[in-house]
Nucleic acid binder design. Sequence first.
DNA 1: AGGATTCTAGAATCCACATTCTAATACTGG
DNA 2: CCAGTATTAGAATGTGGATTCTAGAATCCT
Lengths: 189, 189
Amino acid sequence: MGRPAKFTREDILAAALEITAESGPGAVTMAALAARLGAPTGSLYHRFASRDLLLADLWIHGVRRFQRGFVEALAADDALAAALHTPRWCRSHPARARLLLLHRRQDVVADWPERLGPEAELLERELTDALSDFAARHPGLDPETLAFATVDVPYAAVRRHLLAGRRPPETVDELITTTCHALIPPSQG
Amino acid sequence: MGRPAKFTREDILAAALEITAESGPGAVTMAALAARLGAPTGSLYHRFASRDLLLADLWIHGVRRFQRGFVEALAADDALAAALHTPRWCRSHPARARLLLLHRRQDVVADWPERLGPEAELLERELTDALSDFAARHPGLDPETLAFATVDVPYAAVRRHLLAGRRPPETVDELITTTCHALIPPSQG
DNA sequence: AGGATTCTAGAATCCACATTCTAATACTGG
DNA sequence: CCAGTATTAGAATGTGGATTCTAGAATCCT
């Protein structure tokens, strides 16, 4: 059934991720992408209807992978593990981490494709649900504090290292742990 | 001497800041800026040699103002005040805060003008010096921990609110305070 | 082999923006 | 009033980059 493909969706997304890691998502022009793959631009459009759709796909894949471990840790009632998931994931997936944590969605995907709206909402709800479920199980715990301790603080701890292109050192885990313990009384987390 | 100016540098920078606050720095096109001011694009170029120079100016002004209070607090040996400077400044300068905290310099100014290189370095050194001087005065305090507590954590605390276009609520001050105390033993801060 | 189908190729088109250019204006000092 | 100058005015130019279009190639099925 048809000529064999030289460039799969995965190839293209992988190349886009590489370029992003090196020079930021703004550098992912269709021409640059084609050049890196040795492909004509036409082939890119054969797989992805538009640049936005391509980058949106890349974004969603990343969020899905990143979020899974976080949500599981919270479901297992381990807030500290959830908080430490961020630095650990940054170490195991440096390129993806740079994409997700150093840029806002809107800065990567100019306008989010309608088609993927529900997908994005689903992921977002998955996250907020995990947080509010956890909070519901721990009556003394303010949801805002929980989000701060498990999401915002780890993000902050890791950010300056990602910016510098470094892998976050082990010391950030200690900083996060100390902060978590201070914010979430052990009886609750 | 010469025709009176209708559009000063300050007018232009103010308009740029407005547009940024509403739609992000990417929306600050020379055309959009001209439209908002009711000016011809020629007048913009009469004041600023290029778009990058204009945005770089906006950025530097913002950093200078923001950083002053922070550095002063550290010089006064008050790490908590330094940490709380961020949420407070976000409340008093919401538009500027959005510009500085929601975007990286490189995302605002495509390539930083040579002319302003020294200026930027000066500001950066001012910040790192303030931090290392403080750390030097408190032998038990790890510089990395200090930066985390006074820079990264406040940034993280404020970020989700800036993203939502809200003014950071007072509760973030409490979160920051708790975290600071946990990270910096009171004997040192 | 012939037709259908799925891709590769890459040139051509289009558009948004930064930047430049040429005139026209409104002041000042003499 | 005239020359000089800083500035407004806005049209014209140029470029980077997304998208589209037209061909040509490689495979499968019958």
